[in-house]
Computed example of a mutant assay.
Amino acid sequence: MCLLPDHEIVEWMQSGNLKITEYSEASLTPNGYDLRIAEISVPETGVKISEGTAVVPPKTMFFASTVERVELPDDVAAQLWPRTSWVRKGCLFGLGKVDAGFHGTLTFMAVNMSGVPLEVPVGDRFVQIVFETMHSPCQRTYERRSGNYQGQKGITLAPLAKPDVRGEHAHRG
Rank of each mutant, 00 (worst) to 15 (best):
Q79P: 00
F93L: 14
A170I: 07
K48W: 06
V10Q: 14
E25I: 11
Q150V: 02
F102K: 06
D164F: 00
P57Y: 06
S114H: 08
D34Y: 04
T141P: 04
N148R: 00
T66S: 07
C91K: 12
T21H: 03
V120C: 03
T53G: 05
N31W: 13
G16R: 03
Q14Y: 00
C138F: 05
G90Q: 12
T29C: 06
L4I: 02
E168F: 04
T141C: 06
S41F: 10
E25V: 13
S24E: 14
Y33A: 08
E25T: 10
T21K: 04
G173F: 02
M61A: 11
N148D: 03
L35Q: 08
Q79L: 15
A158W: 06
H103L: 13
P163H: 02
R140T: 13
V116D: 13
D164P: 00
G94Y: 14
F102A: 07
I49V: 14
D6W: 00
V67P: 05
Y33D: 02
S41I: 09
V127F: 06
G115D: 15
G123S: 03
G154I: 14
Y149R: 06
A161K: 05
K89Q: 15
G101F: 01
H171N: 09
G96H: 08
M134E: 02
M134R: 08
H135Y: 08
R88N: 07
G151L: 07
P58S: 12
R172N: 15
L28E: 02
G173C: 01
I49S: 10
E44R: 13
Y142N: 10
L92E: 10
R69Q: 15
T45A: 08
L35S: 08
I40G: 01
P58Y: 07
V55R: 11
D99E: 12
C91Y: 10
S27C: 15
A64Y: 01
E8P: 04
E11F: 00
V55Q: 12
S85W: 09
V67Y: 05
W12T: 04
D6R: 06
K162T: 09
A64E: 03
L80S: 07
A100W: 00
V111F: 13
R36G: 02
P5Y: 11
E132M: 13
